[in-house]
């Protein structure tokens, strides 16, 4: 079946299977930043935006995004690079595998929350698992990025 979507500001028509999930569709079209790491909708690695909201692309049937606007990290290179510079300056990307999904959710948070507290940041990002960093370095990077003052 065909879907029409706006992917990173380009209108495209894609053929998808009925039981195909968005993460697979995106990867098959070369958006290889999109990673999968669970089958249970709980790791956050596949995070992309559908109509500017963070969602788990591994558990959205591709047919259901017909007519919608999809954004991957490839679609926000400037913002992603700005934050990635801070993240990597901390060394908090480590293996990097969870970073694209994490960055997408950080950017979504920046767009949604005004002056979030440390607890609000942690809460917003809880759905992004990471096994390398222990999260502290990511938190330092996010606080630097958002200009959160200690205390």
């Amino acid at each position: 079946m065909q879907i029409k979507v706006t992917i990173n500001d380009k209108l495209v028509t894609w053929d998808v299977e009925k039981d195909e999930f968005l993460a697979d569709t995106l990867r098959s079209h070369g958006f290889l930043s999109v990673k999968k790491a669970c089958e249970t909708s709980c790791c956050g690695l596949c995070t992309v935006w559908v109509d500017d909201k963070s969602v788990l692309s591994c558990s959205i049937l591709s047919l259901r995004v017909h007519g919608k606007k999809i954004t991957t990290i490839e679609g926000v290179p400037k913002e992603a690079e700005e934050f990635a510079r801070i993240l990597t300056a901390e060394g908090a990307e480590q293996c990097g595998f969870c970073s694209p999904g994490f960055i997408m959710n950080v950017l979504a948070m920046k767009n949604e929350l005004v002056n979030p507290s440390e607890n609000e940041i942690i809460h917003y990002l809880t759905g992004n698992l990471c096994r390398c960093t222990g999260y502290m370095g990511q938190l330092r990077a996010v606080k630097t990025y958002l200009g959160v003052v200690e205390g």
């Binding site: 290889l32 930043s33 999109v34 990673k35 991957t72 990290i73 490839e74 290179p77 992603a80 690079e81 990635a84 510079r85 993240l87 990597t88 300056a89 060394g91 990307e93 293996c95 990097g96 595998f97 970073s99 694209p100 960055i103």
Partner: peptide, 16 residues
């Protein structure tokens, strides 16, 4: 020195 990893930006921003 706390030097950024040489592959850091590529892996963080989802390069293949």
């Amino acid at each position: 020195q706390s030097i950024r990893k040489i592959d850091g930006m590529a892996i963080a921003t989802g390069k293949p």
